[in-house]
């Protein structure tokens, strides 16, 4: 376990080097929040509620999602893994008693700790400006359940990124697949609009897909879009199912990918 803690510390250091890049990204994500504010503000003009939720509840949903993504979202882990496979850097892990998935996951946690803390700076500036437009439910039970869903969401997001990284064993370039998947995730993960606004049938289908549990589910628990205990318990079980499935797929891709891998160079 000690070796993964060292990988975590290494990740912490290397991510702190790029703190300005992350800070700039955090700053510009506030522009995205401005777009959300203007668009949904205009949509709510003349409507007290959309989908049963007020403007403040919808804006809070987008803000919590943005912040959560800086804590658990996989930003460029797929590209980093892909680069390590393509450049042969992965060879060193094949010769050492270290699990590559756990090594990358340790670095992922370190990276999200840095980006998560950095987003708090623009957030501290933005929240006082938006104070009148934000509202969070007061039930305390939402916090532990939301945190469990958020932890599972981190595992799902990292596992999907890891899967795309593994595709490098078969394809030289994975960028196209990643950006294609991002488009699907942004819709079915509820990043473009709250998923509960979808027609009931489509929403029901989305609840069985992993994308729902990537972002929408934990945010919906925190912001009060899901309240029924049965729905939350069922969601946590399905989310766990996707975590286990994706971890299995990761392992299969790693084993099969290594069979195709040719270690060149010294």
């Amino acid at each position: 376990m000690n070796k993964y803690f060292h990988a975590f510390l290494l990740g912490l250091q290397s991510n702190l080097v790029y703190r300005w890049n992350f800070a700039v990204r955090g700053f510009f994500s506030m522009f995205h929040l401005t777009v959300v504010f203007i668009l949904w503000g205009a949509a709510y003009t003349g409507n007290h509620s959309i989908g049963g939720f007020s403007f403040a509840q919808t804006l809070t949903y987008f803000l919590v999602m943005l912040v959560m993504q800086f804590f658990v979202g996989a930003f460029n882990e797929d590209y980093q893994i892909s680069e390590e496979i393509r450049n042969g850097l992965i060879n060193q892990f094949l010769l050492k008693p270290i699990n590559y998935f756990l090594y990358r996951f340790s670095i992922f946690i370190a990276a999200r700790l840095v980006t998560g803390l950095l987003i708090l700076i623009p957030l501290a500036i933005t929240i006082p400006l938006l104070r009148d437009y934000l509202t969070l439910p007061t039930e305390m039970w939402r916090i532990p359940l939301g945190l469990v869903a958020m932890a599972q969401s981190a595992l799902i997001q990292f596992s999907i990124a890891y899967c795309f990284g593994m595709l490098t064993f078969w394809f030289l370039e994975i960028q196209g697949f990643v950006i294609l998947s991002m488009a699907v995730e942004s819709i079915l993960g509820g990043q473009m609009f709250p998923l509960d606004l979808l027609p009931a049938g489509v929403f029901r289908v989305a609840q069985f897909l992993p994308f729902y549990y990537q972002t929408y589910f934990p945010v919906a628990i925190f912001t009060g879009r899901i309240s029924a205990s049965g729905a939350i318990a069922q969601g946590l079980v399905i989310q766990l199912f996707w975590v286990v499935t994706l971890l299995t797929v990761n392992q299969v891709l790693w084993t099969r990918g290594l069979r195709r891998h040719t270690a060149v160079g010294g």
Partner: peptide
């Protein structure tokens, strides 16, 4: 083909978002 699909998907994302918002409201600004 892949990149044409990528761009098409992202365009669809934007159009779908508009479609969904307008199921809830008749007018935006």
């Amino acid at each position: 083909f892949l990149w044409a699909m990528v761009e098409l998907f992202w365009m669809s994302v934007n159009l779908l978002m508009i479609g969904v918002i307008y199921t809830q409201t008749k007018s935006i600004a």
